[in-house]
Design a protein around this nucleic acid. Sequence first.
DNA 1: GTGTAACAT
Length: 847
Amino acid sequence: MFSGIDKVAMTSGPPQIKQETSSTSKPDLIIFGSKRKRKNDEPQSTVLNHGPSQDSNGGDRNTSSGNKKYKPNHAAVQNPLEGVQGKLKEKARKLWDQRKTLPIWSHADVIRQSLRDKDVLLLVGETGSGKSTQVPQILAKETWCTTQRVPATAANGKKGFVHVGGCIAITEPRRVAAVSLARRVAEEVGTPLGSSSPASTVGYNVRFDNSTSPCTKIKFLTEGMLLQEMLRDPGLREYSAVIVDEVHERGVNVDLVMGFLKTLINGKYKGRYGVPLKVGVMSATVSMEGLIKFFEGDSETRDPLSSGYRQAEAESEWSGFSESDKETPDTGANQEPHGRSGLQKNNNLRAFHNKACDPGRELSTEASSDKPDRNGPLLRTTNDSAVAICHIEGRQYPVTVVYSPEPVQDFVDASLRNIFQIHYKEPLPGDILVFLTGQTTVESLEHLVNEYAIGMSPDLPNLLALPLFAALPQSAQQRVFLPAPPKTRKVILATNIAETSVTVSGVRYVIDCGKSKIKQFRTRIGLDSLLVKPISKSAAIQRKGRAGREAPGQCYRLYTEQDYLNLQSQNTPEILRCDLGQAVLTMKARGVTNIIDFAFLDPPPREAIEKALMQLFQLKALDDSGAISKIGLEMARLPLTVPLARVLLAAGEPELRCVPEVIDIISALSVENIFLTLHSEEREEEAQVARRELYRREGDHLTLLTTVRAYCAEHTDRKGWAERHFVSHRAMQAVVDVRKQLRAQCYRSRIHTGSDDTDNTPITSELATTILKCFLNGFAVNTARLMPDGSYKTVVGNQLVAIHPSSGLYGKKVEAIMYNEFVFTNRSYARGVSAVQMDWVGEAIGG
DNA sequence: GTGTAACAT
């Protein structure tokens, strides 16, 4: 059905299109003796330039003339596509009027000029500024944003040409954002989206969903996806520019992307044949000082104190929960050559000293105001700096902040009072959004609101309490986005999912408990803790902002103003809080030899890096010299945590040969819990009966295997099957996606998968043993043995650990257990648990 | 007797 359209596009468009679409290869290949692949002012940019002739920018002239040429061409050939294109154009023209009113619009020239003069632009755009959709369009029309044809010499000495640049990448922290921004920009540009047409100039690339065309000029992708592309092509030759959006969220991936980009810029664009790469860094509320220093400073001499996170780190180092935790970090034997442990330690001490001497320092960039300084110059260009800076005001209505006069002990109770206070006092419309810490607090407040609403005066509007958290089934999440019924006020009870991932319209009142659950990896004991902690100032501002998107609003903070002023200014970057195994493996696979010297935005503690290096070495991902091994390279290609990647590789070894089974288990372990949590006791018992056929006494790993198999064996009604077995259908769909991806990857990497038809192989007790032994290849350190008193203690480190109540082995006593996760909440729990034998563990550790 | 959020050829 598409072939017809393809043909039309190829015969009716300008000849350049024909040439472009007929070629399947991307412009990053060396083409010897071929004709040019893409030229500056060719159609992909003319399509982008549907916009207004009122745009008087000089850089547009080429393309506007192209535009004129393009249109008559279409008209002449009675193009059936004209109808479709016409509609797209019409929509785009309508959107054009809206776009003109965006705050960013008046800065378009400044943005263009910045990147003509400099290689790096730091852009702070408050919410509603339109930065994510407009900046790519503004830059795509620049003359530097075209494919360069560069002479090059191939390995065999033959002379030829390479093509570098032409496309703009915009990275997003989340898949939904990448996809929806691409959709929006495609509409504004008036082009079909992604792979729907070979002439599409706007596309996206996220896991499980690549939608680009040979003409893609603007590509939205997730941070992880860009990292994967860098693994293949460190020079990012496809792109003329990379725009990193939402840096302030500071996931691990964005820190790696930033480090690689800086290395690329400072390394004279190695791998790009001298063609510069423009870098845009966009953020909502970040203090820019850290970013300026990052790009301007030399990573060798940069003072880690500049970022302000060092203090947070130093603090947490010393507020550890056990005495043994408080020992001075012992750097011990180190994997890395010429370590800087002395310097590092010194900095920690300086952080301490600094904090004691100048406690105001960590607030310096935010001061006590919520708003960034607007008096500062919009564009600061010191001549010797390679960095341009631009600030764009947002389009937010004012939000009044109301602080609690005194500290709040029970924020569920305080929220309840606030909800009814607002409800009694304030007229409709205006929904309420409450930020809580987790599923349990959300659900208990939900019950309370419903209970109290019964006794309300009948003259008052109704109250509709709506829970919102990630584990909630999709259908229940959708209810939040429906407009409130007549004479009803919605009260959305949310976790921090509503802070960034999800926007709810209609909200004018925000109640912020000032806390969220944060995962912190404790390097020394290899334990994740998931604890309720105060949020940062920037998170508090973000939450507040949710009240002012459509009208002036109010934000009730369930903490005092002094508490607010004492909050850390930014979220602690994830790279300072997580197990660095995967991050270090990614760096090693990208050729970073000395991890300590990597261009970190915020260098993690040396100890955490060493722990990761040790883990990778023990799993044979690194060799004796610390260089990446063949196994390590294979592991880096797998979209899995380090231990799971190791298990998958082990499963292909001749003595184990259980790849299909291991893939099924790993897929289930890689997604959120596939078993639904049930609330009433009857439902719980019902579920136990329904799941009985899935249960394996060996433990959770094999129970997951039987569940995945049974689900996949159901061909007619999987949704019904999931419901009958109290299994999350959404999670199982994710499992199926991961499973498919892993099978494909194993096939490509020639990992022995055996026949694909092993779904019906009976899981004998021997096979179960093989599978568990296979898992010990990655999880030998995640084991604990039974003590005489009935408790379990970890084999490595002798820490007390309890089997999590969600495990099938909960309450059972076996010789030893192996677990997928070790998490501290109220106590230390092992999650994803199976029974193992001590001699298997000994074998795995010894061998 | 229990789960903040998100990402990956």
